[in-house]
């Protein structure tokens, strides 16, 4: 459904290409993991798909097609029709990604307001509540009228997910959505994403620097280093049998769980 071919992105302010010749495919209903360290070009790849590249300050080439519609070279008007409606985005820092002066519920319902102006505000309210319920936000009626500073990071990220899925997009771009959250919340969000993928068949591009997280969620994984795609394959294959030395190092860098008696000063 999503086909990235030979994507090149170079910012005018940088010497090196941020993305050099990346080709990737996401199939219908698939969750693809995109792994790499910061600066490896994974976020730039996702932003190119989301139409969020600062076009005036970079050069780009290649093609990105979503179900046959070209996105990379699409004009703004077409892009805006796709943004939010066909492609939902969830960012790393939910606190800064949300408008601090707008009620949570209004932000959740914003995509509907933009793409389906024919829906009455009352219906939009109920749709927002439904999306919040789907994102497993407790007490959506109460949360609707709250402001971002009143919610925890995990709750905000659920609200961001609710906002991203409200208009049933084909593709969900998740840019390190769990990195800013603590481990328990992180696990809950991963479960939520799995559920949404299973129940609605939303395809996802999940970006992370953490292979371990990707392994729990994604059937396939692609590894990027310095703008280049170095490895791609079924997650378990890559995990068991990495080919590229960078992938090997990434896997080796994951701390293994050895049972040790926790030292006393760790207990509060």
């Amino acid at each position: 459904m999503l086909e990235i071919k030979d994507l090149h992105v170079k910012f005018h302010s940088r010497e090196r290409e941020a993305v050099s010749g990346v080709s990737l495919t996401i199939r219908n209903g698939e969750i693809l993991g995109l792994v790499g360290e910061s600066g490896s070009g994974k976020t730039v790849t996702a932003m190119s798909v989301a139409g969020l590249l600062p076009r005036r300050s970079c050069d780009y080439s290649g093609s990105i097609e979503l179900d046959g519609t070209e996105l990379l070279h699409a004009d703004r008007t077409l892009l805006r029709k796709m943004q939010g409606k066909e492609i939902g985005v969830v960012f790393q820092e939910p606190m800064s990604a949300m408008d601090p002066l707008m009620k949570i519920g209004e932000q959740v319902g914003e995509t509907l307001l933009l793409h389906h102006p024919e829906i009455s505000s009352e219906d939009r309210y109920y749709c927002a509540l439904a999306a919040m319920r789907e994102a497993e936000l407790p007490n959506p009626e109460d949360t609707y009228g709250r402001y971002p500073h009143e919610l925890s990071g995990g709750m905000l990220q659920r609200a961001m997910i609710a906002a991203a899925i409200i208009s049933r997009p084909k593709l969900l771009l998740l840019d390190e959505p769990t990195t800013a959250l603590d481990v328990t919340i992180q696990a809950q969000i991963l479960e939520l994403l799995k559920k949404l993928n299973r129940e609605h068949g939303i395809s996802m591009l999940f970006i992370s620097h953490n292979l371990n997280v990707v392994r729990k969620l994604c059937s396939r994984v692609a590894v990027m280093q310095k703008g280049i795609l170095v490895e791609e394959g079924q997650t378990e294959d890559v995990w068991e049998n990495p080919h590229h030395p960078y992938t090997k190092r990434l896997i080796a860098a994951i701390p293994t769980r050895t049972k040790k008696e926790a030292p006393d000063h760790d207990k509060f």
Binding site: A50, G51, L52, R76, R80, K81, M82, Q83, G84, K85, I87, G88, V89, F91, E93, S96, A97, M98, D99, P100, L101, M102, E110, T111, L114, H115, M160, A163
Partner: peptide
Amino acid sequence: NQDYVRTAISRGNDRVGVLYRHVLKNAMA
């Protein structure tokens, strides 16, 4: 330049929408 502007664009807002729905209120405070 705030992150929420990027979010607003990712939902399909045009420049006018970003300005009047989000930025202006924050800028007026």
